[in-house]
Nucleic acid binder design. Structure first.
Lengths: 165, 165
DNA sequence: CTAAATGCAAACTCTTTGCAGATCC
DNA sequence: GGATCTGCAAAGAGTTTGCATTTAG
């Protein structure tokens, strides 16, 4: 009764589906590990984020999802993205120019350095900053960033509080 | 018929008023030079931007203005700020986090570098990016930036268009 | 079965716009 | 005097929220 065209083969198929599998598993693991449920809208948003080549607005993301057959409400997409952000799975940015927020998968490799001129401490920071810079340049300047080196020197919170203003 | 309490003294007064004078003159010159009128709302917004120590939302800016006795409509503040932005007098930023845009005077010294890995060209860019980074760090991390060094390497627009994708 | 998540619609925030009347030059 | 600006109020985007219904575990 088994039908090859409907069931997944035992050997890994062509790359895209295999990757999709891995992504799906990653999502489910993260959700479950944090006590959240695995639902259709969440899978759909996750898949759309992976398919997207650019940072998408919530509206675009939703369109992407319905285009693939699924049907998710805007509100659910918003809620799902907020959750993903909490879980460190996705990230929003909006750099000065644009009105609507744009979403992307969170890449843990984006970081920058904060150097304190008082105590000499160097802080490695992961955050939306570098992603935001990339986006800004790509959209506003037509520049394709490969490496973003951001070093900010100044006074860290601790030294501000200790020292005289 | 001349009255000292109403006319400006011939010698420069205490510093703050003198600075305010200079600011006012700068605004008027810029406006007139570009064929715009000098109006009360524009003066008020300009003064408020100078008084502000931080980047303010339109709402805060308006409150600041009414607090000083003047009375300006929100819509006019929006229109005025748009004009100031066009004239290079003010700048808005909004870094990922915040919802409402925040305004500040435009400081021409904020710049960063774009290095093209293909043609080797180094572009000095003035823009809202550095200001946005400062704001982000100050508000989100309690870090007081003194120097922001941003170097982005990648492919410039020209090389992207010329070369193979 | 029950808590959690979704869809729908209404509410909210920030910003823009149309227009009549006020203002600058 | 005439084009430019302003204030007011209404409309627009983008996002959030309340609540009844559905769904995952």
């Amino acid at each position: 009764m088994r039908n090859d065209t409907e069931e997944q083969p035992r050997t890994p198929p062509r790359t895209p589906p295999a990757a999709a599998e891995a992504h799906r598993a990653e999502l489910e693991a993260t959700l479950r590990a944090n006590g959240h449920r695995v639902t259709e809208p969440r899978r759909a948003v996750w898949a759309a984020l992976h398919r997207a080549s650019e940072h998408l607005t919530v509206e675009e993301l939703t369109a992407e999802i319905t285009a693939v057959g699924a049907d998710v409400d805007l509100a659910s997409v918003y809620r799902t993205l907020d959750l993903f952000e909490q879980l460190g799975l996705a990230r929003m940015s909006r750099l000065g120019d644009t009105d609507a927020g744009r979403w992307e998968l969170a890449h843990p490799d984006e970081h920058f350095h904060l150097v304190c001129l008082v105590c000499g401490n160097v802080d490695h920071h992961v955050g939306s900053l570098v992603a935001g810079i990339r986006e800004h340049l790509e959209q506003g300047h037509g520049f394709e960033p490969e490496r973003v080196e951001l070093v900010v020197s100044g006074r860290c919170r601790r030294c501000r509080e200790d020292g005289q203003t």
